[in-house]
Design a protein around this nucleic acid. Structure first.
Ligand SMILES: [Mn+2]
Ligand SMILES: [Mn+2]
Ligand SMILES: [Zn+2]
Ligand SMILES: [Zn+2]
Lengths: 140, 140
DNA sequence: TGCTAATCAACAAGTCGTGCTAACTAACAG
DNA sequence: CTGTTAGTTAGCACGACTTGTTGATTAGCA
């Protein structure tokens, strides 16, 4: 994702107004590695801006997604998560606490075998599931 | 997934009754590579057994899933898909028509880099997205 | 044959996300 | 500075998917 300042410029170029709500969301996403859901982002936003609506958070996230500034990640466990990291990367997910971390796999593109003659791969998503160090420590 | 005959035996062992509905679902899943949703499986089932309920299809799929006889695959595109293939395999998905095919990746376990010290990987899911041969042909 | 699980219809609820309306606010162009 | 208009908000609804519940009926299996 671009910096908040760059996003301000980009939004103005596109004819979108630069509102305090949008700027707050830009800042909250900037460098955010938590892979938050719209709901959790809303909760943090509401601390700094009581009265901001969940609707607006969803709206702004959709705009950023349409611009390619964030990607949304569906781990199949409830709500979609949003990711300001749009590098080519993948994720590890702790089955116990749900934490999501970025990982980089250098072997991509991967080779595979199967009955898929002529299939053109555009993207590859890898999710590693398991147990994080903290959860392993607690259960020991 | 075990064969329908083996599942019949397994259900009886577990104290589950072997109903025509359950047997039909066993047969419809046996060797099924379509990765159907509960809804599409229900539609096929209803052709052979008018009156079967979607509720029962969901119910039986949950039982099979709990027994480890099918896996459910959430591709983030609507309904969960069910897969009688419980081998260690992965999937290619056509973004255009939604078809899902099995693929086998021999490089697993994969190496990755990231801030994930001590993370114990239990499973890896890979989804290749792109365009299948049929859709490429139609759009050409 | 009888006990009990399974099924069914019908309806509700929960989660996640979006659509819509109406009223108010405020960003930005002129 | 002012006016236009996009954006925000509350509130309510809806849609997709999935599960829960209830009560009546069916049927598997000991
Ligand atoms: Mn990420
Ligand atoms: Mn499969
Ligand atoms: Zn954990
Ligand atoms: Zn296709």
């Amino acid at each position: 994702m671009k910096t908040p300042e760059e996003l301000v410029a980009r939004f103005r170029e596109q004819g979108y107004k630069v509102t305090p709500q949008r700027q707050l969301i830009f800042r909250l996403l900037n460098g955010n590695t938590a892979h938050p859901t719209a709901e959790t982002l809303y909760e943090v936003a509401a601390e700094q801006m009581p009265g901001i609506s969940l609707r607006t958070v969803y709206q702004t996230l959709s705009e950023l997604s349409a611009m390619g500034e964030v990607q949304h990640i569906d781990l199949g466990s409830g709500a979609v998560r949003f990711d300001p990291n749009v590098d080519d990367h993948h994720h590890v997910v702790c089955s116990t606490c749900g934490v999501v971390h970025d990982v980089y796999v250098n072997q991509t593109p991967l080779r595979f075998e199967g009955d898929v003659e002529g299939f053109a791969v555009h993207s590859t998503r890898i999710v590693f599931s398991g147990e994080c160090a903290q959860c392993a420590h607690l259960s020991a």
